[in-house]
Simulated assay, not measured.
Amino acid sequence: MKRLTISFFLTMMGLVSLIGLSANSAQAAELPYLMIMGEDNDRDAIPRDSRVFRRVLNELADAMNADGFDVYDETAVSLDDYAQGRSRRSDAELIDIARSVKRPPIDVVVLFEVYASAERLDYTTKVRTRLSGRLLDVHSGRRLGNFEVSSPRNFRAPVNCNRECILETVGNNARLLARDVADVLVQKLGDEVDYGYDDRDDYDDRDGYDKGSTKDMARRRGNDGCRGRVQDVFLNFQNFTEQEMLDMEDVILAKFSCYVDHRPAASHGRTHEYVYKTRLHTGKMKRNLIRALEYLGMSGRVKYQGKEFTVSKVNKRRSRYYQDGAKW
């Protein structure tokens, strides 16, 4: 009976270890929150209050939502703080709105434009439609891709097609183009989100520190099973001396998983700013920073908004009174 109990205990411990290893070997990818916005600042583009514009927007949103991406409606998430129904908006206004939305925080915006023209001939009406735009990371400003699709030459309308007829023809054509654009967007975003690092062929000397640079070792150690798009995270450290920042960098390189790269952006006295590239989930990034403070024996606070983290170290009063020995 005693042997049976011991065997059962060892078996359960083995299962727990396997579960822990499998959980550590696959980091969950952070899916970006998307918002689709129309660029209609160009007077030749179709305005956002047009039925053609709405058909394109709905087609893009439906296709990306069906592929597993979280797409949020601009009106719904900006209803309380922004004027609605505006058209002919500039790029600066669109990006500012996307960055300002915090519930939920928008990561990537799909900016698109629709152009259309009609040429009346004696025997038919030629309708041309073009759809163009780009993917933009609203936090870093990094372009994730561009797209442009034009209608084929065989789009035709009746010779006596009036304005209502033209709008319906352009809407039908634009909707078909939106499907093609959605396929391209899904592929581009899918490559960003599903991309991962496979280090099975990399040499990883976990006990030796003389094999390659610190950054190379951090990449090899921290990317086991990491999947997801590379995100630019901005780290601000306050009340840190130069030596304390060196210690913090060593902890980040040695302990943080899904590391890609980092570089200093600015340093002023005891304030240091870094651009940190990672595939790590935002929630785990905050936990890691808190644990880094605990690991270094520092008191501090971590707060973040969007992709910007601020780590404030709480300095303790230094004692300048020394006791050289007991005196009468």
Rank of each mutant, 00 (worst) to 15 (best):
L4F: 12
T5G: 12
I6L: 09
S7G: 13
F9Y: 12
F9R: 09
F9V: 12
G14E: 02
V16S: 12
L21A: 15
L21G: 11
N24Q: 12
Q27C: 06
E30P: 05
P32S: 08
L34H: 02
M37E: 10
E39T: 06
E39W: 09
R43C: 00
R43N: 12
D44V: 08
D49E: 06
S50E: 09
F53P: 09
R54F: 10
R55L: 14
V56D: 01
L60N: 08
A61N: 00
A61I: 07
A63S: 14
G68R: 02
F69G: 04
Y72C: 08
E74Y: 07
S78A: 02
Y82M: 07
D91T: 02
A92P: 01
I95K: 01
I95C: 03
K102Q: 15
R103Y: 14
R103W: 09
P104C: 04
V108I: 11
V109N: 08
F112M: 04
F112C: 03
S117A: 01
A118F: 09
A118T: 11
E119N: 09
R120Y: 14
D122T: 09
Y123D: 13
T129W: 06
G133S: 00
V138P: 06
V138L: 02
H139K: 00
H139S: 05
G145S: 00
N146D: 15
F147V: 01
V149A: 01
V149D: 06
R153V: 10
N154C: 03
R156Q: 13
A157I: 09
V159H: 06
N160R: 05
N162E: 15
V170E: 06
G171I: 04
L176T: 08
V181S: 00
L185S: 05
L185H: 09
L189K: 04
G190M: 04
D191V: 10
Y195E: 06
D198Q: 11
D199K: 14
R200T: 13
D201Y: 12
D201T: 14
Y203W: 12
D207M: 12
G208F: 14
G208D: 15
G208C: 13
Y209K: 12
D210V: 07
K211P: 00
S213K: 06
D216V: 08
R219G: 01
R220V: 02
G222D: 08
G222M: 03
D224N: 15
G225C: 01
R227H: 14
Q231E: 14
V233C: 08
F234Q: 00
L235S: 04
N236I: 06
F240E: 06
V251P: 02
A254N: 01
F256L: 09
C258T: 00
V260R: 02
D261C: 11
H262V: 11
G269W: 00
R270E: 11
R270H: 13
T271M: 13
Y276Q: 05
T278F: 06
T278N: 03
T278E: 02
R279A: 00
H281R: 01
K284R: 07
K284I: 03
M285H: 03
I290L: 10
L296T: 01
G297R: 05
S299L: 10
Y304G: 08
G306P: 04
E308Q: 10
E308R: 12
T310R: 10
V311R: 01
S312D: 07
K313S: 07
K313G: 00
V314W: 11
N315F: 10
R317K: 09
R318L: 05
S319K: 15
D324M: 11
W328V: 14
